[in-house]
Design a binder for these strands. Sequence first.
DNA 1: CGATCTTGCAGAAACCGTTCTTCCATAGGG
DNA 2: CCCTATGGAAGAACGGTTTCTGCAAGATCG
Lengths: 370, 370
Amino acid sequence: MTAAGKHQASRPLGRRLERAGIRDVAAAAGVSITTVSDALNGKGRLPDATRRHVREVADRLGYRPSAAARTLRTGRSGLIGLTVTTYGEEPFTFTEFAYFAEMARAATSAALARGYALVILPASSRHDVWGNVALDGTVVIDPSDHDPVVTELVRQGVPVVSDGRPAGSLPVHAWVDNDHEEAVLGILDHLAAAGARRIGLLTGTSTDTYTRLSTTAYLEWCQRVGQEPVYEAYPAHDPCAGAVAADRLLARPDRPDAVYGLFDPNGTDLLAAARRYGLRVPDDLLLVCCSESGGYAGTDPPITTLSLQPRRIGTAVVQLLIDAIERTEGIGPAHPVQQVMPTELIIRASSQRRPHRTTVSPPRGPARGE
Amino acid sequence: MTAAGKHQASRPLGRRLERAGIRDVAAAAGVSITTVSDALNGKGRLPDATRRHVREVADRLGYRPSAAARTLRTGRSGLIGLTVTTYGEEPFTFTEFAYFAEMARAATSAALARGYALVILPASSRHDVWGNVALDGTVVIDPSDHDPVVTELVRQGVPVVSDGRPAGSLPVHAWVDNDHEEAVLGILDHLAAAGARRIGLLTGTSTDTYTRLSTTAYLEWCQRVGQEPVYEAYPAHDPCAGAVAADRLLARPDRPDAVYGLFDPNGTDLLAAARRYGLRVPDDLLLVCCSESGGYAGTDPPITTLSLQPRRIGTAVVQLLIDAIERTEGIGPAHPVQQVMPTELIIRASSQRRPHRTTVSPPRGPARGE
DNA sequence: CGATCTTGCAGAAACCGTTCTTCCATAGGG
DNA sequence: CCCTATGGAAGAACGGTTTCTGCAAGATCG
């Protein structure tokens, strides 16, 4: 065959120094390329002797299959994108920082455990970067209303799973989120039970679902229990604005006697503001904030925090995504899979008026009666 | 030509649905594949009319060049690995967490700005993951003594730049680090100037260069000024051990009247311990810790921190790496490029004995005299 | 007017691992 | 004894891009 002849002939001169290729292994082992591939990937029908021999030769030659070639042929890169909606030009959000870090960590672990690696790709990336990397799927943290990148990806058939329920009609394949309403209601009830009469809220001005759902839950709760809402909203991506907002909240004439802060730094912000106004926590002011930072166990007083459990979420998101990727590339379910994860309220001194009275419960029985 | 004929003939049946390839664009535009490639990459000698036409057709077809194919051909993936030495099984270190997050953020930005994306790849990853992704280079944070992954990468000719000077004789292409000795000496002098008589150190048991250099600097300083060293070392990756070590340090009979903590959580750890022993900060105990957390501005009292400037380091590391990658693939300098970055001491109340006396400096002149 | 240079574009090799198809040989069944 | 089933392995196609080579035609120059 002319084609074959030409191909063979051109081989030697095209050979560069560089690493050993599959051909070299085949030649060294005295078998065909196919046999090498099959032996290394455990695929064909080969006697164990051949398999062992090929593996040994490959090892000796320091053979590493080319990731690029494999990706080209199989259409799988083993790469998962991790996207964060950005405020401003920085690739990550400042506000949910500890959250993001924890979540990313868990996601990385989970992906690695299944043989995938994570690529950090902020939504605001130059478009060419998105085009230049072959992704098997993408995790989107807190997708914004009609994220162009996400829509584009979905249109191209790339599986997308979001952390946080998608706003608008973003066609993600699945999402994972906390039950934010329930979490807020739980906190408000907790504060009310601790004796709060007027609970304030420190919230954000952005339109993401977390902020929106939490705020509405607060407003509804107020309406239900007949309390006038007392809240301050600030641009959550501005680290200084939080301190200012906390101050404003405590400076109000209708000053709350308990506050829940939606963002991580709100705990210290509020604590500092309380100190300025001579308010003792928890005696004059009960405090809770949403944070993943362990630092709140060591403040004076320790502050009750709501954990969104980013580790669980990160793991779940990646599992869902990889499931979608590996679901024979076939089209997934029409409706996105949705998974709601629990939150955890870590109760510390700042939200308990009585100074740590250990209540001994009765020996047995459902000690429910008051 | 037989070869050509065969190739052409086999084309139609191999065609799958899927996205438009470069061939489709070529056909639709009525030009050759070469022309399409050149037009899109601005490479060949083409009249602007052709270029525009091809671009337009490509746009209409929604053509996206295949990243895998490009990588295969050019040998460049546009991907940079970000590796963290791990303690335990988690992919990142707990202790330097804020540091890591900030650093990663800056590195991501810097990489993106130059058209690269970052892949998170813990050193402890399953080996197959490392093999399955084509990296143009790798950033290694805090490389351990003889990291097998790093040596392997270097052997393969992949550029490696490390954050933190490499221990042992790890053959990295470049490294970036702070001047840890100078930083520690600066802090000790600062504390001494604030009236400290016996400065203690909260340090780690691990052998990384940061811990080692900082500790030696402390010991040397002690020897120089004739102070008996007072320190406690603990496994820095254990979040609880820090609190215990802080407690031990302040429980000692030769209790220090000033402490520098090498790790991020040490500030709160020490503050809590001081509170337990009834020590007032800064009156009875001066405090400094190394941290990137802005939270220390809001503690009571605010704590003086040493910032390692992870943002600058992350940026520098990536710049160095990409320079190495793009240096015509040629062999870089024999000696690794080394770049020492400044640290910043953010002085707050915890390390100043006088309660914030605003010293008005004389109108002009080098007011240096005492 | 012929020779050389430039421009505009096409052809095909190369990249490299996987997969599809084909082929051989041997053993077992009819 | 022939046919088939199956284990074992080889060969070629494939994927999509870049890049090197090279060919025509028009432009320039002597």
